[in-house]
Amino acid sequence: MLSRLAGSVFHVGSAVERADVVARMLDVYVVRPDAGVVDDEDVVGPTLHRVVGARSPGRRRLRAAVVESLALDRHEPASVAHAVGVARDHARRAREVVSTELWDCLDVTRSRMPRKVAVDRAHEFLAWVRERSALAVGVVEGDVSRDEVWEFFTLGRSLLRCGLTARLLASPLVDTGSAASWTTALRACGAGEAFRRGRDHHGVAPRDAAGF
């Protein structure tokens, strides 16, 4: 595979994963925070910006402003909307190796990305983003070929997830001694159900959650 095509496929995977992870973190920590989550808007907004690699807000950010910035701001490189655009643009550059199904998925997602979302509809919007990301991943995973397209797409996804997970775990959003905080962190990483599966208790031991 030509390096330019490999690079574009890598960026598609990374951008799809960013859209999913940022949407999940926004939903868990900002839109519908659980008990045990840091409840100080002066802390949550700037901290989440640092975790996802966004520009520093430079001032107090209310929850609605954080959603606006990290979900819908097309000029913010770390936002969901920007990630969707990047995924679509790089898929277009790699059309000769990207499947028609993946291209259609990303093109439709980009065309339906709203510019404004009411605060009380933010959860539904973020769920839609996660569904579209899952569809893109499913299209790639459903292909019978485990070729270089699959490899570079998966590499882009994996490295992005590793980086954002590491930043989250090192941030003040996780109280390392709190079971409730670890429960929320697992949900933010999309690992809550996987952690509980096969366990015969409902509690979350911080050591077990950290190890997982």
Rank of each mutant, 00 (worst) to 15 (best):
E101H: 12
D143L: 12
A94N: 10
F153G: 01
D34M: 14
D120C: 02
V31H: 08
F152L: 02
L102N: 11
V84P: 13
R50W: 07
E41Q: 10
V149K: 01
E148Y: 03
S99A: 14
L48E: 09
H90C: 10
L102H: 12
V44F: 03
H75L: 03
V67G: 04
G53N: 05
R95P: 10
V144T: 14
P46M: 03
R63S: 06
R50E: 11
A118V: 01
V149E: 08
R146H: 12
R121K: 13
R130F: 11
C105L: 00
R110M: 08
E151F: 02
T154Q: 06
G58F: 00
D89K: 10
F152M: 09
S79I: 05
T154D: 06
D147R: 05
L135E: 13
H123W: 03
V80H: 06
R50I: 00
V37Q: 14
V80E: 07
D42A: 04
A87E: 12
W103L: 13
D42Q: 02
A83R: 11
A91C: 11
F152W: 05
D39W: 13
W150K: 01
L48I: 04
R55W: 05
R50Y: 01
R61F: 05
E141W: 09
E68A: 06
L126E: 09
A127M: 07
R55L: 10
W128L: 04
W128A: 08
V137E: 14
V44L: 09
D104H: 13
V37C: 15
R112T: 06
L135W: 11
S79M: 00
R93A: 10
V98L: 08
A134H: 12
E76M: 08
R130W: 14
V117F: 06
R110C: 10
R115S: 14
L72Q: 03
S133G: 15
G53F: 07
F153P: 00
H82T: 12
